[in-house]
Design a protein around this nucleic acid. Structure first.
Lengths: 141, 141
DNA sequence: ACAGCGCGCTAAGGATTGCAAGCACCGAAT
DNA sequence: ATTCGGTGCTTGCAATCCTTAGCGCGCTGT
């Protein structure tokens, strides 16, 4: 069991403005109050994607694992960071895996790997899989 | 039970529902079979984070919204892209991959396919997995 | 006073997740 | 032939999500 008591083992930070050790619920509540929105206003703003009842539970920490898409709706409505919400919810964030624009020096490629025919076929099939996926992946941001 | 519910509340991708019915389950099953791993091997490889029973259901498409962290475990043990799994599961991906148009053609058999960096890395990981598997047959990292 | 409205919040319940346990099947060793 | 281990898969169940109703409170106007 985990306790959600945000007021211990920490010398109490005076500035809750950053994305510190806040709980998801506390953070969401803070943002909503800052925007002076009611639970039902948020419900409408998200086009009923998040019910006022659920948001209440969310803010009170009664929900442990909210659907990522709900978090996304809230991030859009509030104008806050989606990955941050994901992180607060205990989900591993996709872009946290650093492997993007870094080591570019490893030329390598498959040329020097002497692919067997079997391997090549498998890799081709896999590549197709990846790309088929990306086609469907259009429609975000 | 139909997944064709028109009164969907949550943001779901406006997918054409035609052509490539590339589902999460099919993809996961494909990868696992390519790696020649049994359900229980994966269960062990993920340190019991994913039970064999659940993986079976996942592959058969019986699970609609798996926990992102489970998808992460699978992406790690399979050596595949986590955001891609998220996307397949219907979750909105945190920082969308803007990898298109990044082509830095690297020759080899795949040169004609103009691999992006991400694709290349994923394929490399995949190739490594294939070869690893052939060498050891069993054991862990 | 008392409607009426909006507020945060709670109750109850259907739906889904994820797991432990167990099933039926198969191939190999005894 | 029979046991043994391994395979995918199913079942039953507790836990959790998320929704629809509805409660109690405070406010405003008639």
């Amino acid at each position: 069991m985990h306790e959600d008591n945000p007021s211990e083992k920490h010398p109490r930070k005076p500035e809750p403005t950053s994305t510190t050790q806040l709980t998801l619920g506390a953070y969401l509540a803070s943002v909503r109050q800052t925007l002076s929105m009611s639970l039902r206003e948020v419900e409408d703003a998200t086009k009923k994607e998040v019910s006022n009842a659920y948001l209440s539970q969310l803010e009170k920490g009664k929900i442990k694992k909210p659907d990522p898409n709900i978090l996304y709706s809230l991030s859009e409505t509030y104008g806050i960071s989606y990955p941050n919400l994901m992180s607060l919810a205990g989900y591993i964030v996709a872009s946290s895996t650093r492997s993007d624009t870094q080591h570019h020096g490893r030329v390598a490629t498959f040329a020097e790997h002497a692919l067997t025919k079997e391997e090549e076929e498998e890799l081709m099939a896999y590549l197709k899989f990846i790309r088929d996926r990306k086609k469907k992946q259009h429609g975000q941001t």
